[in-house]
Design a protein around this nucleic acid. Structure first.
Lengths: 100, 100
DNA sequence: TTGGTATATCGGGAAATTCCGATATACCTT
DNA sequence: AAGGTATATCGGAATTTCCCGATATACCAA
């Protein structure tokens, strides 16, 4: 993954907030009946609700974060759940230590 | 410093390269007669030469990196020398560990 | 003081990003 | 099959970023 694309993904207030929310889903989202936060993540609708932005914008932002390998997704029925991608975040730490 | 501004500063190929070059100036720049890399940094002209972009662009890029507290500058005569800001880079690591 | 060199700032055209509403797709229920 | 819900994709107006050349400023040397 291109380093610049990772930092572009992070250079937006809402996208940074989403990553923060997904770090502690139980504090930031209401309980989910059918999926646990740790294994599956949080569904798009909840993230959109919390952000206050439009559905299309949030869907696009999530895909930008996913292309940067900062989050990953799971489809369950009609819902898509997103959660943090720990490997990608670890890689980002390495970039900062080794390249900058 | 605003987190978004830090990531915006990093979301450009040339600016990332500059930070990389400044990590190991002795490998990336010719010897300087009047200033040592470790204490003072590298002057704007050398960075511009290496980047291949215009003088005005590099001057602006350096000021963007400085506003994000990723580099710092020292004026010596008619030259401005820039070097890495270790505290700022450390702060960036913390952001990634604590906020994302 | 005059001229030369290094850097910063200004103004702007082109390209990218932000965020939206409309629409398409996928899946579920009946 | 038909209608409903969740998400993705499309098209676009407004804003921001990229990068330039021209110009301003700061300092030095003669």
């Amino acid at each position: 993954m291109d380093q610049v694309e990772i930092f572009k993904a992070l250079s937006n207030k809402t996208r940074l907030q989403i990553l923060g929310w997904l770090k502690e889903p139980e504090l930031n989202f209401p309980e989910q009946p059918n999926a646990d936060f740790e294994n599956v993540g949080v569904c798009v609708g909840q993230i959109q609700l919390k952000s206050g932005l439009s559905q299309s914008t949030i869907s696009e932002y999530l895909s930008i974060l996913q292309r940067a390998e900062l989050i990953s997704s799971t489809r369950v029925g009609q819902w898509t759940y997103y959660k943090r991608n720990k490997e990608g975040l670890e890689k980002l730490s390495e970039i900062i230590h080794k390249a900058l």
